[in-house]
C-alpha cells in the first residue's frame, strides 16, 4: 500500500510546494513536509498524528503555498471542519487519502475508516461502536455523574486533549480563562473544565480519538465526545466532517436549523 502512496506523493510534488506526511528518522516517526528531492523511502503511515493541524500552521505561515497531505478518514473529516472555520484553505490543498486497515478501524471504534477517494487500501468495514458508550447509557443518572466525577478526578490538567485536537484552534481558550477555570486546582473544577471543551466540540468533534490517546490520566474522553456527536446528530442532523457543503448548525438560527426533537 505504501508504495502506491509514495508514487502519488512523488506525482503531487510536481504540482505542489510540498506534501505533509509522516517520516521515520532517528528511531521516531513525526510529521514532515516532504519537498522535491526528499527521500520518500523514509515516509511512514503510522502512528497517527493530527496532520491537518500541521497543514493549518503551514497555510497560515505561507499564504501562497499549495500543499498535499497524506490523510486517513479522520484527517479528512478534520479537514472538512477546519476548512469551514477558515483554518485551512481548501483551494491550496490536495488530499492523498488511504484507507485504514480493519484492525485499525476496530481499535479506533471508527465508523468511517477511509477518506472519500482513497488512492490506496480498500475501505474496511466500520469498527464497532465504543462499548463504553453502551455501558454508560445503561447507568442511572446519579451513577453517570459519579462515573465522570471519578474519571475527571484523575485529570492532571495537562491540556493535552486540547493541544492535540485538530479542531481546537482558538487563540484565546476558555479553559485558560480564570473566570471559568479557577487556577491552581488539581483536579480542575468539576465538571466545568471538561464540559467547557465538550460544549465547544459540539459540531466540531470528528472522532479522531487523539484526545483519548494522548491523555496521560487515561480518561475515556471519547465517551464524552461520542455522546456529544450523537446529540448533535439527533438534535440537529449534523455529522461533523461528513460534508464540506453542510453549514455548521451552531452558526445558523433555529429557523434555519430547527431542532429535530
Amino acid at each position: 500500500m505504501i508504495a502506491a502512496i509514495r508514487e502519488a506523493v512523488a506525482e503531487r510534488l510536481g504540482s505542489c510546494d510540498g506534501v505533509v506526511a509522516l517520516r521515520r528518522r532517528n528511531g521516531g516517526v513525526a510529521p514532515h513536509l516532504f519537498q522535491k528531492g526528499d527521500e520518500l523511502a523514509e515516509m511512514e503511515l503510522s502512528p497517527r498524528y493530527p496532520l491537518m493541524t500541521v497543514v493549518s500552521r503551514l497555510h497560515k505561515a505561507f499564504p501562497a503555498i499549495r500543499l498535499g497531505v497524506v490523510a486517513r478518514g479522520c484527517d479528512e473529516r478534520a479537514y472538512v471542519e477546519m476548512a469551514k472555520r477558515n483554518q485551512i484553505d481548501p483551494t491550496r490543498l490536495e488530499i492523498i487519502g488511504f484507507a485504514c486497515t480493519a484492525e485499525e478501524a476496530q481499535a479506533c471504534y471508527c465508523r468511517e475508516p477511509s477518506p472519500k477517494h482513497p488512492v490506496a487500501g480498500t475501505p474496511p468495514a466500520p469498527g464497532p461502536p465504543n462499548p463504553l458508550v453502551a455501558k454508560y447509557d445503561s447507568l442511572p443518572l446519579e451513577e453517570r455523574r459519579s462515573f465522570w466525577k471519578k474519571q475527571f478526578s484523575k485529570c492532571i490538567k495537562c491540556y493535552g486533549c486540547r493541544n492535540i485536537c485538530p479542531e481546537c484552534f482558538c487563540e484565546a481558550c476558555a479553559m485558560e480563562d480564570m473566570a471559568w477555570v479557577e487556577p491552581g486546582l488539581l483536579a480542575p473544577p468539576f465538571p466545568t473544565f471538561h464540559l467547557i471543551r465538550a460544549m465547544h466540540m459540539a459540531s466540531r468533534c470528528v472522532a479522531c480519538r487523539e484526545c483519548e490517546h494522548t491523555c496521560p490520566a487515561y480518561i475515556p474522553l471519547t465517551v464524552l465526545y461520542d455522546l456529544m456527536r450523537r446529540d448533535i446528530a439527533d438534535l440537529l442532523g449534523y455529522i461533523p466532517g461528513a460534508d464540506i457543503e453542510a453549514q455548521q448548525p451552531l452558526s445558523l438560527s433555529l429557523e434555519q436549523a430547527p431542532l429535530k426533537k
Partner: peptide, 25 residues
C-alpha cells in the same frame, strides 16, 4: 516543531516506549 527556524509547537513522540505519545503540562 519549527517553521523557518521559529518554534511553533510541541508534539508528543508517539513511537516512544517511555512516554507513549503522552506529555504533562
Amino acid at each position: 516543531e519549527t517553521i523557518d527556524g521559529r518554534i511553533t509547537g510541541v508534539w508528543p513522540d508517539k513511537t516512544n516506549q517511555i512516554s507513549g505519545g503522552r506529555l504533562c503540562i
